[in-house]
């Protein structure tokens, strides 16, 4: 049996430790939140083009904020918007009109018009180009981008 005096003293130590831990723990949690600010994803709708400038079979390029490029294509009435960032290692793919394909010059990645990789390293990994949702309002085509803020 521990003497009462000692037991009380120990209990106070525990209470003190707990109070210190709680307060400084909270403070530290704030500091961690400060140092690693969580970035929220925000969707935004931006103007891409008018339907008249993207008839079936046509494609056009649009630059998004932050330097991303978006390739808009109209394949038989279906409007698609694809990112030009190769999912393999982040190079820039470009559209090859005559071959009807996207080509990544870094490691010879090839993507079909719908963005699915058909050859090269991205195909082996089963990757595809990022696709952005698109909406048509009146004659205007809008892109729905996600941004980190």
């Amino acid at each position: 049996m521990i003497p009462r005096q000692a037991r009380r003293s120990l209990l106070r130590w525990v209470a003190l430790g707990f109070a210190l831990l709680a307060s400084y723990g909270t403070g530290a949690a704030y500091a961690v939140r400060f140092l690693f600010p969580t970035r929220r994803r925000r969707e935004r709708r931006v103007f891409a083009c008018f339907t008249s400038s993207l008839p079936p079979g046509a494609s056009l390029k649009r630059r998004a904020p932050g330097g991303r490029e978006v390739l808009l294509t109209n394949a038989a009435g279906e409007i698609r918007a694809l990112s030009n960032i190769c999912p393999h290692l982040g190079c820039t793919v470009h559209w090859e009109e005559h071959e009807s394909r996207f080509f990544c010059p870094c490691h010879q990645g090839v993507f079909a018009p719908d963005g699915i990789a058909i050859s090269g390293p991205p195909a082996k990994a089963g990757q595809r180009l990022e696709r952005f949702p698109v909406s048509v309002e009146g004659e205007a085509v809008f892109l729905h981008l996600t941004e980190e803020v």
Partner: peptide, 9 residues
């Protein structure tokens, strides 16, 4: 104004 708890720090 933006970073979490920035004003506190």
């Amino acid at each position: 104004e933006e970073v979490a708890f920035g004003w506190w720090i």
